Amino acid sequence: MTITGWVRRRAGELTRFSVVGVAGVVVNLGVFNLLRLGPLAPDSTVAGDDDRVVTAKVVATLVSILFAWVAHRGWTFRGRRRHRPARELVLFGLVNAAALAVEAGAVAVSHHWWGLTSLWADNVASVIGIGLGTITRYAGYSLFVFADADDAARTGQASDAS
Results as ranks from 00 to 15, higher is better:
residue 81 R to W: 10
residue 45 T to P: 07
residue 18 S to D: 01
residue 131 G to E: 04
residue 4 T to R: 13
residue 147 A to C: 09
residue 127 V to D: 05
residue 38 G to L: 01
residue 80 R to Q: 10
residue 8 R to W: 11
residue 32 F to E: 00
residue 156 G to V: 02
residue 67 F to K: 02
residue 60 A to V: 07
residue 140 G to Y: 03
residue 114 W to R: 04
residue 151 D to N: 14
residue 99 A to G: 05
residue 137 R to I: 07
residue 71 A to W: 13
residue 101 A to D: 03
residue 129 G to K: 02
residue 121 A to I: 07
residue 16 R to K: 12
residue 40 L to P: 12
residue 7 V to R: 04
residue 92 F to R: 00
residue 134 T to M: 02
residue 36 R to I: 08
residue 4 T to D: 02
residue 35 L to T: 00
residue 48 G to L: 06
residue 47 A to H: 08
residue 87 R to T: 10
residue 101 A to Y: 07
residue 94 L to A: 10
residue 54 V to F: 08
residue 129 G to Q: 01
residue 12 G to I: 15
residue 61 T to L: 07
residue 31 V to D: 06
residue 83 H to V: 05
residue 27 V to C: 03
residue 142 S to F: 13
residue 146 F to W: 03
residue 116 L to F: 10
residue 11 A to L: 13
residue 32 F to M: 12
residue 161 A to M: 08
residue 51 D to I: 08
residue 103 E to A: 15
residue 147 A to M: 11
residue 90 V to F: 10
residue 147 A to F: 00
residue 104 A to H: 04
residue 28 N to S: 01
residue 128 I to K: 10
residue 66 L to V: 11
residue 70 V to L: 09
residue 120 W to L: 14
residue 83 H to N: 07
residue 77 F to D: 03
residue 99 A to P: 06
residue 53 V to W: 09
residue 40 L to S: 12
residue 44 S to L: 13
residue 102 V to I: 11
residue 86 A to E: 14
residue 66 L to T: 12
residue 66 L to M: 14
residue 135 I to T: 11
residue 34 L to Y: 12
residue 66 L to R: 14
residue 65 I to M: 02
residue 100 L to Y: 15
residue 18 S to C: 14
residue 62 L to E: 06
residue 67 F to C: 05
residue 145 V to A: 12
residue 27 V to L: 08
residue 81 R to P: 09
residue 59 V to A: 06
residue 6 W to M: 10
residue 92 F to M: 02
